[in-house]
Simulated scan of single mutants.
Amino acid sequence: MRPKQSKGFILLEALVAMSLILGAWLASVNVYQTISLRFLAQEAKQVNLRKVLDVYETQERFRVYRGQ
């Protein structure tokens, strides 16, 4: 038979294991959130650059056509 103290030790092991799993899960969620926020910021920059490029191309097209 095991002494009574071993039940407390098993409970402590279970709590440590659960906290390690929870910590790893929270770290994974944090990494995912960081990556998705960076992706959204990059996508917003790309949209802005496309708008600027479209304006520039339109201005150049009108400038060339007026010169002819």
Score class of each variant (00 low, 15 high):
L26R: 02
L22S: 09
Y65N: 09
A24V: 07
V64Y: 07
A17V: 04
K45L: 06
V64Q: 15
T58H: 06
Q5W: 03
N30Q: 12
Q46Y: 05
K4W: 10
M18R: 02
Q68M: 08
P3L: 10
A14F: 10
L22D: 01
V31N: 04
Q46K: 14
D54P: 02
Q42P: 03
V16C: 03
V47I: 14
G67M: 13
F9S: 10
R66G: 11
L11F: 02
I10V: 14
I21P: 05
A41D: 09
Q33W: 00
N48P: 04
W25K: 04
V64E: 15
A41E: 03
N48I: 06
L26N: 03
E57P: 01
E57M: 08
S36E: 15
F39A: 15
S28K: 00
P3I: 04
K45P: 04
Y56H: 12
F9D: 09
K4I: 09
R2A: 15
S28A: 09
V16Y: 06
Q68A: 12
V64N: 14
E57K: 08
G23Y: 04
A41F: 12
I21C: 10
L11G: 06
A14R: 13
T58W: 01
G23I: 01
M18C: 01
S19F: 05
F62C: 01
L49Q: 08
L11Y: 03
K7S: 10
S19I: 03
S6G: 03
S6N: 07
N48S: 15
E57G: 02
R63N: 05
A17F: 02
R50I: 13
I35D: 15
Q59N: 12
R63S: 04
F39Y: 15
V55A: 02
V29W: 00
L40Q: 15
